[in-house]
Design a protein around this nucleic acid. Sequence first.
DNA 1: TCCACTTTCTTTGTAAGCTTAACTAAGAAA
DNA 2: TTTCTTAGTTAAGCTTACAAAGAAAGTGGA
Lengths: 406, 406
Amino acid sequence: MSSSQDTGRSVLRSLNTGAVLRAVVESGPVSRAGIARATNLSAVTVGAIAGELLGQDLIVENGDTDATAGRPGRLLELNSGAYGSIGVKLSDRSVTGVLTDLRSKVLAEASRPLEHPSAEDFVRVLRDLTTSLTADAGMDWDRLLGVGIGLPGVVDRGAGTAVYSPFLQWIDVPVAELAETALGLPVIVENDVNTLALAERWFGRGQGVQDFLLVTVGQGIGLGVVLGGELHGGARGGVGELGHMVVTDADEACSCGSTGCLEAVASEGALLRQSEVLTQRSGSDPVLDMDELYHRAESDPDHADLVDVAGERIGRGVANLINVLSPELVLVRGPGRFEGSRLAARMTESVAHHTFAGLAGRTELRVEHLDDMPWARGAASLVLSELFMSPATAPGAKAMRSGRIQ
Amino acid sequence: MSSSQDTGRSVLRSLNTGAVLRAVVESGPVSRAGIARATNLSAVTVGAIAGELLGQDLIVENGDTDATAGRPGRLLELNSGAYGSIGVKLSDRSVTGVLTDLRSKVLAEASRPLEHPSAEDFVRVLRDLTTSLTADAGMDWDRLLGVGIGLPGVVDRGAGTAVYSPFLQWIDVPVAELAETALGLPVIVENDVNTLALAERWFGRGQGVQDFLLVTVGQGIGLGVVLGGELHGGARGGVGELGHMVVTDADEACSCGSTGCLEAVASEGALLRQSEVLTQRSGSDPVLDMDELYHRAESDPDHADLVDVAGERIGRGVANLINVLSPELVLVRGPGRFEGSRLAARMTESVAHHTFAGLAGRTELRVEHLDDMPWARGAASLVLSELFMSPATAPGAKAMRSGRIQ
DNA sequence: TCCACTTTCTTTGTAAGCTTAACTAAGAAA
DNA sequence: TTTCTTAGTTAAGCTTACAAAGAAAGTGGA
């Protein structure tokens, strides 16, 4: 793991090393011969690369294949505990961090309040959080591969900047640079929903799926797009504003300046506002949160309507995405109260109704639970993803992207 | 151009050959030294690859750089005329074909009626069309790189099949296989809008643009998606059903079985139907085509409304795409009557209104003219695109995709 | 017990491809 | 004519991959 900067090392080897590493990660414990079959590389090459990876402590030998005939193969598997990755989720009031192993298993977690969401404050808190996590997990500092940071808003991952984050009120903040100088570790910044999508791609429902979408439903409505196995970032990283898709003629003003956005007509905030109008008109008790709103919908037809309309609209948005991108899988994740709710049910119906017939049955829709921790865990997987995609450049240095193949 | 199948030849060389070829195509006439700078390859490698390409007749030397100092470089450029590509656009009543050179310049064009859109009939017509085009252009048959076929509907490019084409009433037809055996040439099948998008990417507005969308407005509403410089095909090729996006509460039934689709509320057909209701109600003369409808909208406020609403809705659809994918460029192409029409103007306004503020100014919107010929020309560029992306495998054989890097 | 058989992994030799360094080529300017 | 600068080529060395052959390590039958 020492000499990661040998520029002479060919990109070809790097690609093949990546392929071997991915085979180990994805095909569990596997023999060298098995890797050779999976990657189409020669046994010799696999042997050599496996030797390097063993030397780097990234993989370990662990037991043999039970051979029916012939010499049993020595099983190789990821040495999960050898290195760690730190993931940080930034919201407007707090910073949540985790330290994970190479398999994205959480080894330590912690949270800190963020009084003023200024970049300086954040970096200070980040430094504290990172040292604390490393101590908690009992991990050597130089075994850290890097830090992934997920934050809401438009993020330019290549430049490492927060381009525009309304929640944090950040505009063009060079987050990665600030954090790198403060920590002395490689830092990757990404939109928070994207980090979640990446975690799904490597360790969740998206494993082995080429094209999938992750939709997060909650305070806002977010979207992560994985196409061809890779996260789509878009021009300067501004992807996934599903909350500002328009699927109705209702022209409620949205905070973004447009009208009729999903976020303005079907987000949790929008539902609570709509409920307030209803309860004021009827003189009934006000509804304070979503749990209560779902409960009210069971008895009050007006509230039921309200939820139905919102579900139909969110479903339209999801169906629109399916019609346009035709992914294999759409994963809708929301807080506990969302899964199994009337809102989710209506949404599912609406998706089925509005999906183009020619594409029917081609896309799977899953509605699942979303805790808080995966956000930070997703950010940690940013670093792991870089490792698995281009191990030659990791750890220790920024990804070299010369474009040249040598 | 003879020995294209040496399996021993490393993929590495193939990648670099592609890079050199692309540099020649994209940077016009350029010296070896210029290519080396552009690709980051060494001068030696560029020299060797250039030698191979010269031997294959793919590029030629043509003049020198005007050197201010030092030895002038010998300019290399694509030998456009050396090889040809055939492109075919299939609609329900006719087959249009072109033969282009390597720069996508049309050398010959022809059209044939298609009485019964059966696969057998099509192959027969295709054979006739191909020989006729080749004769017209005075090109040697063995200088043909291949045939690209664009057809409406869901196409599985990898399998070479038309999965589902409502227009043609084709389901799971192995078009590529049928055509390959009939012609003895490599055949690539793709959705027609996608072929158009590919032509833009290589020879049109999309040159040098990483992420862009092509929206075609006409009888239907189509979409081609280019992300990261590559056409996005989606799961089994079903991408781009923008016509079936829902952006309104109007629940007009659509031919696809859903309700409220763009195609049902804002396509040319939908507008004419809506106009019919108006004229019948008011007893005025019926509107027969779009030209007349635009004209009527200038004097009749009801018709103006109708166009305005449709424009607003199409604009919503386009803005939705921008919010979700954040491309650098959205190219909207329609028939002559569309560009500069009231419909286009309203659409543009609507896009601006509904685009998420955080993404503003990041996406360029262009509305331009769309003839008939580009469809077939786009299909021809399918073949050229394969050449530029992986020249080692072309011409003569199906793309080898072992996944192994050697 | 021993020997054939199968499968895994390593060693050895060879070919391909890229890079650097040195060299030749070719024009402009002093 | 000499010097400078840029273009392109040749030579040498390094990395990497493959193929072939050997060594290792089991099973199973005679």
